[in-house]
Design a protein around this nucleic acid. Structure first.
Lengths: 342, 342
DNA sequence: TTGAAAGCGCTAACAT
DNA sequence: ATGTTAGCGCTTTCAA
C-alpha cells in the first residue's frame, strides 16, 4: 500500500517549502510566478489531491452538510435530499444523510454524531411531534453554534428558522376549492401530528368557518404513514360513516395509496363516488389525474442550503423572513367534482 | 463562541494525562478503575464528544462511506440509499451521497473528491454505459486502494466485485412467462444501454430462442428515463407498429409511467388490449396490479456495505462470489393475460 | 517572496 | 498503570 501523496511530496518535487506549495494549492498568500509554476507541475505529476480531513481539522470548515430526516424512502424527503445535494455541490459541499426513522432518540444521536464530525451545517426535518416539548438538556443540540435550518416541521419551544410551505394558506385554498364545488361534508385524513399537518388542518378549519360550517371531529382521522393496512382501516371508517363525506382531503401523499386501494376494493370511482384532493405530487397523481397541492420541495432544499451558507458567513439576511415561507400551489386535475345537494 | 471541549479538557478536569483520558474514552489500553471513574465523570460533566475529524486524520478510518449514483430521485437509487444508510449505521458509519446525474465526468469528480475525504469505502452505481471503455487514466479511481463495490452496473474492462440481481435469469423467467401465456410478439422497452439492461435483454432473447422465435429488432426500443414525452413517443411507435405486439415488457420502472399515460390516452386497457410486465416494484404497480420483476434492492444495499466492511478488514470471503448475485423474483398480478392465436 | 514552526485533536509508541 | 511525546496533513502566523 503506497503512502498517500501529501503537500510535502509536492514541495519536495517542486523544490520549495511546504508553505509555498500550500499557498499555490490553496490559492492564498503571495507566490512568485516561478514557484507557482514549479508547484503546479509537481501537483500534476503526482496527481496530488489535498487531504480534506486534514483541511477540516486545521481549517474552519469540513465542507460537509448533514441532512437529518425521518424517512429516506419517503418521496418528499427523497426530493429534498436531491435538491440539497445539488445545491450543496455548487458551493463545494458534500452531504451526509441520516435517517431517524421518525424517532427522536435517533435524531438526537445523529445530531451529536454530526457535531462530532464538525459538519458546517445541519438541515433537519425533525421527528418532533407537535405536542413534544423540547427537552432542556437537548436545547443546545437544536440551537448551538453549528448553523441549523429546520425544514417543514417546527419544534415547540424553539424559535429557529424554519423553511416550509405556506401550509395553512394553501390548505385553506384547497378546502375552499372543495367548498366552492358544493361539498359540505369534507373528511380529512392525515399522518401523525406534525406541525405542518396542524397548520394544514387550521387552514381547512378556516375555510369551513368562512362557509359557516361547523368542524366535526369525526371528519378528521389520522393514520401512520408506513402502515398500509391501518391506512385502509381508517379510510374504511371514513367511508362507512353514517353521513358519508362527499370529499376526502388527504394531507399527506404517503397515505394516498392506501386510500386508493380501499376505494378500488369497494369499486368506488373518483370523482364520481368521492372527490379526492391530496397533498404532494407524485407520478401517480398525474396518471390518475388527482388534484394536488404541490409543494416547492426542491426550492425548499435549495433555500435551506443557501440559508446555511449565509449563517456560516454570518451574512445578515434582511430578506430572510420573506424567504422562510414558500408558496405551495394547487394543480387542478380531474379528481374533484361539483357536488349537488339533493 | 466558546471553544470546543477536547480530550485535554477532560484530562485536566479528571486530573490525569491526555493519554489516560483517551484510553478511557476510546476504550483501549489499561486504566485503573479509579482513573476510569474520574475520567467518566469529567466526560459527563463536560459533555465531551470526540472530534471525529481528528480521529479520521490520526486513525485509519473516517467512518464514512460514499454512495455515488446516477439519480437520487430515482426510486431504485432511493431504496438503495435507504438500505445503505441503515446498514452503515449498524457499523457506526455515516453515508455521503453523491449524484452524478448519469454523467461520467461528474462521477470521476465525485470519486476524486471522496478519496480526498478519505472515505472508508465507495458504493458505486456507475454512469458508464455498456459501450464505454474505462479510460486508462481513470483506472486507479475505479480500482485503487479504497474499498469499492459496484452495484448493478458492470464496467467494461474492470473485473471488480459487482453486487446485482440475476438479471439475465430473472428476465428469462419473465419472458418465458409471457411466452407460456401464448404471446409470440413481445415488445421490449428499456432505458439507455447499461450492463443490467443488456443482461435482461439477453435473458429475453434466450427465452425467445427456446420457443423458436426469432428476435426482431423492431421489438426492442430504448427511451431515456427522465423524459416523459420521449417515452410516450417511443411507446407510441411500439403500439403503432404494423404487427402490434401483444405484450410489452418494460425493463425499467422509470419508463412505466410514460407507458401507462400513453395507454390511457389511447383508452387501451391492461391486460385486455395489452399484457404488461415491468421491472422493479413501486406502489403504483401494486395498485394497478401490474405483474413485476422485483429486485432485492435493500438486500443489495446491505450486502454492498457488508462487502466494504469485509474488504476493509481484509477478511477473506470464500462465499463472496455466491453473494454477488441476488435473486430477483416475479410478483404475479393481473397485467398479463393469456393470448389466444386466431 | 519564502521558509520554519506551531498547532488543530486525536492515538499510539515509548518510557517511566 | 500512567505520562510524555511524536505525528497524521494541513494552514497560518512570524521571521527572515
Amino acid at each position: 500500500m503506497e503512502p498517500n501523496i501529501t503537500i510535502e511530496d509536492v514541495a519536495k518535487l517542486a523544490g520549495v517549502s511546504r508553505a509555498t506549495a500550500g499557498r499555490v494549492v490553496g490559492g492564498y498568500g503571495n507566490v512568485s510566478a516561478k514557484s507557482r509554476e514549479k508547484v503546479m507541475k509537481a501537483v500534476q505529476e503526482l496527481d496530488y489531491r489535498p487531504n480534506l480531513v486534514a483541511q477540516g481539522l486545521r481549517g474552519q470548515s469540513t465542507k460537509t452538510i448533514a441532512v437529518i430526516l425521518g424517512s429516506i424512502k419517503n418521496n418528499y424527503c427523497n426530493k429534498l435530499i436531491y435538491a440539497v445535494e445539488k445545491e450543496a455541490q455548487k458551493y463545494g459541499y458534500n452531504v451526509i444523510v441520516c435517517n431517524t426513522h421518525e424517532d427522536i432518540a435517533q435524531e438526537v444521536g445523529h445530531l451529536q454524531n454530526m457535531y462530532g464530525r464538525h459538519v458546517d451545517g445541519v438541515i433537519l426535518m425533525s421527528a418532533c411531534k407537535s405536542g413534544d416539548e423540547l427537552k432542556e438538556q437537548h436545547r443546545d443540540l437544536y440551537q448551538g453554534k453549528t448553523p441549523i435550518v429546520f425544514v417543514d416541521r417546527r419544534i415547540k419551544g424553539l424559535d429557529s428558522r424554519v423553511i416550509q410551505s405556506n401550509n395553512a394558506e394553501a390548505s385553506y385554498q384547497a378546502a375552499k376549492y372543495l367548498l366552492e364545488l358544493g361539498h359540505r361534508n369534507i373528511a380529512v385524513l392525515a399522518t401523525d401530528e406534525y406541525s405542518t399537518v396542524n397548520e394544514r388542518i387550521k387552514g381547512y378549519k378556516r375555510a369551513l368557518g368562512e362557509y359557516g360550517i361547523e368542524f366535526r371531529s369525526q371528519n378528521l382521522a389520522f393514520a401512520p404513514h408506513n402502515d398500509k393496512e391501518k391506512i385502509r382501516q381508517v379510510t374504511a371508517t371514513i367511508l362507512d360513516a353514517e353521513e358519508r363525506a362527499t370529499a376526502l382531503y388527504v394531507l399527506n401523499n404517503s397515505l394516498c395509496i392506501g386510500v386508493l386501494m380501499e376505494l378500488k376494493e369497494r369499486h368506488m370511482s373518483v370523482p364520481e363516488d368521492l372527490s379526492l384532493l391530496v397533498w404532494d405530487d407524485e407520478e401517480l397523481n398525474e396518471l390518475l389525474e388527482i388534484t394536488t397541492v404541490v409543494q416547492p420541495i426542491e426550492e425548499i432544499g435549495k433555500v435551506a442550503v443557501q440559508d446555511l451558507m449565509r449563517q456560516k458567513e454570518n451574512i445578515a439576511d434582511p430578506e430572510g423572513e420573506k424567504r422562510e415561507v414558500l408558496d405551495a400551489s394547487i394543480v387542478f386535475r380531474q379528481s374533484c367534482k361539483a357536488y349537488e345537494k339533493c
